[in-house]
Nucleic acid binder design. Structure first.
Lengths: 236, 236
DNA sequence: CGTGGGCTTGATCTAGTTCAACTAACGTGG
DNA sequence: CCACGTTAGTTGAACTAGATCAAGCCCACG
């Protein structure tokens, strides 16, 4: 009873995997799930560790990252609220999962989560669809990392962030200036875009001096000319 | 009856998704599946096209590729026998699928394949596991494309190919020279590794002059010192 | 106040691209 | 059977996008 309440009040109930479950099914999931808060910078899972947990991200933002043996790092995915974390059916975690902001999770022991998955075909189907979507995203990013210029990467990233965090909903084609705070530092952007901090910074100031964006504060971005920014993102 | 025979004789029966089905379940799949041969260079699916088919690769090798609007291309995945092709539950194909060698496929209409998937939970589970594996592979490749040097990419690629095509099974740690034919041209390697043809060629001749490999013919590779080659692949 | 992290800016360097020959292998048709 | 065009591969010289190295700036926080 109380436990269904917890899920019923979940911020991402309707968007997460759990949205596929009926109220009574949620009871089972609640029994194995545990709320957990994690601070910005903390890492939940280390690549190579035994894969013991899965989770749903309830609030905040996290990153998935990989690194070479000599320490070069690359962010290979971003996680947003309602996203699924972890890899069922695998013994080892493939990537490191770290909080980019303070975050809140619903954590499940992997084995038990697999059992729930097994018993709830619809949930498994949803996870399959999400995994396909993640795969498509990763492959698209491969094109970016391998072939796009620094300017294209930065411009495309800003547009993506504007669409996610730009207030006043999705007024995508609106040409009024739009201001929002980036949830990532320059260093985190560099790690995501396959560049260095300096290059990211230079590209931003270039877009600023060209009048396409403004930088009201270190973390704030104003999109002043979305049209042109889109042009820079896909310089045909 | 005849139709089950077709699957029973399938070269990849035990390794493909279909391996999860009982003989009588195969009948259903056979009814919707169709053998198809495709020549080297032909493309089966174009990115952006309506997603009408799924398939199993029976024999040969294919690539998945993406490109920018101005024609820069990147191979985002390789497909080997028994691999699954296509994206169920999506209306559009995300990537172009092209044969790297003459190939043979078992093709299913997407909708009908989805229905089979729906009716055979075990098969859906297998597909989920494969999709996770593909996702992990794609993310690992992101690290390579963003952070590794040309030499590391080429060396790692050769080791991967040696493990797949090196005759006499997986004598991975054997230090006897191992010769095999690359299934990819220099251009295809470049597209896969995020480099240019010239860079791939130069790296290969460097590895040759350093004595780690030999190049008996344009397509042939001899691994002469796997240890050292591995060192070049992960220059710690 | 000073100290440290995040950010910017400048100067220099370099790995890999680009451009340009050139070579080798391979069919195809005269 | 050989000339010839074509495609794949190699090699060299020059160039450049982005990395690296090196200050400095700004502000929050102890």
């Amino acid at each position: 009873m109380l436990s269904t309440r917890v899920c019923a009040e979940c911020a991402v109930r309707d968007r997460s995997l759990c949205g596929s479950l009926s109220d009574d099914e949620l009871v089972a999931l609640n029994r194995i799930g545990q709320r957990r808060r994690i601070a910005r910078g903390e890492t939940l899972i280390w690549a190579g560790d035994e894969s013991i947990i899965c989770a749903n991200l309830l609030d905040g933002m996290m990153k998935l990252s990989a690194s070479t043996s000599d320490g070069r790092e690359q962010t290979v995915g971003l996680l947003y609220p309602a996203d699924f974390i972890g890899r069922p059916f695998a013994r080892q975690a493939g990537f490191t999962v770290t909080a980019l902001t303070d975050a809140e999770l619903c954590v499940f022991p992997r084995g038990q989560f697999e059992a729930v998955l097994h018993d709830h075909v619809h949930m498994e189907r949803l996870l399959l669809e999400r995994t396909f979507a993640a795969l498509e995203d990763a492959r698209g990013r491969m094109l970016t990392l391998a072939r796009r210029t620094a300017e294209e990467r930065v411009a495309a990233f800003l547009i993506d962030m504007a669409d996610r965090f730009g207030s006043a909903g999705c007024r995508a084609s609106n040409d009024a200036p739009l201001t929002f705070d980036l949830p990532l530092t320059r260093g985190e952007m560099a790690e995501l875009l396959g560049l260095t901090i300096e290059t990211v910074s230079r590209q931003l100031t270039r877009l600023k001096t060209d009048g396409l964006i403004a930088l009201p504060g270190p973390r704030a971005i104003t999109i002043r000319d979305r049209q042109q920014l889109e042009g820079r993102a896909e310089a045909a």
